[in-house]
């Protein structure tokens, strides 16, 4: 082709309407956090899993039907056992969410990386979903995966299918519980990370928001409705419904779900308000 005909040529490829940028953001974040030594926290969070696995083995092989197992409810392997295990992971989950999530947006804001993100074909929802994927991944490693593994262990060491027939719904309950936790606690840490410029402030405030109402609930233990202010209590109450176990508090589970939806909605609003491509520096 003569050189004078070498002009601008239109691109002839096809445009992908929604490139999955959120997956790229998520995968990069997961990899970066893994390199920062996340494995240590995860190993720590797996100590209760090993204890519970031993409990399942011993109870299934030697304990079932014995007077001790009948007398001590907490030794039984039932829906309550799995609900209790997920509740027991609370502190580890919070610490891992802090480790994974406190700096996710705060650091991007601190180093003005949002402008770089949004100069690419990345929208707010891509950005938020990508960041949430990171939190969901690490949250799953300490709640969803070990709980599912415990269920599989129980099914495998059982000598018949009675347990599976009776509690076939538990893996779905675990999944629903995990999604509920990510949608509430995960979005909350992102919102706080967006609201604070420093990782430390986001971490301390997240911890305070989760712990303070729980202490108030302890102080005002005679008022059942005080539990509605505690995300821990609200998650327990809603989680009890998912697992079909007796409710730990007397307040309505519908109210518990409304609180969770409210927290998630408010967190998304804060995130939307703080995550902007450009920021006016005063």
């Amino acid at each position: 082709m003569p050189i004078y005909e070498e002009t601008y040529r239109s691109w002839e490829g096809s445009l992908i309407p929604r490139p999955r940028t959120w997956r790229v953001i998520g995968k990069t974040g997961i990899r970066l956090l893994w390199k920062k030594g996340m494995i240590l926290f995860i190993l720590l969070a797996y100590i209760p899993f090993f204890v519970r696995a031993v409990q399942i083995y011993l109870m299934t092989r030697f304990g079932e039907g014995t007077p001790l197992a009948e007398a001590v409810q907490s030794l039984k392997i039932n829906a309550d056992f799995f609900h209790g295990f997920l509740q027991g992971q609370w502190l580890y989950l919070i610490l891992i969410l802090i480790f994974a999530g406190a700096g996710l947006v705060a650091n991007d804001r601190k180093y003005n990386a949002l402008t770089i993100y949004f100069s690419k074909p990345v929208g707010f929802w891509d950005y938020a979903s990508g960041k949430l994927l990171i939190i969901a991944f690490y949250g799953a490693l300490v709640t969803l995966i070990p709980a599912w593994l415990l269920f599989i262990i129980k099914v495998m060491v059982s000598q018949d299918a009675a347990f599976l027939n009776q509690y076939y719904y538990i893996p779905f309950s675990i999944l629903a519980y995990f999604l509920m936790v990510v949608a509430s606690l995960g979005v909350l840490i992102l919102a706080l990370s967006a609201a604070a410029r420093s990782t430390r402030s986001a971490a301390v405030f997240y911890f305070a928001i989760l712990t303070f109402p729980e202490i108030i609930r302890g102080i005002l233990s005679r008022i059942p409705e005080a539990g509605l202010f505690s995300l821990n209590a609200v998650l327990r109450q809603a989680g009890a419904g998912l697992f079909g176990v007796s409710r730990p508090y007397v307040f309505s589970p519908i109210l518990a779900w409304l609180v969770l939806i409210g927290v998630s909605g408010l967190s998304v609003l804060i995130l939307h308000w703080r995550v902007r491509p450009t920021e006016v520096i005063k």
Partner: peptide
């Protein structure tokens, strides 16, 4: 490197 987490883990 992560004193806040270590502190929270120690205290709480």
């Amino acid at each position: 490197k992560h004193p806040v987490l270590a502190g929270l883990l120690f205290t709480f």
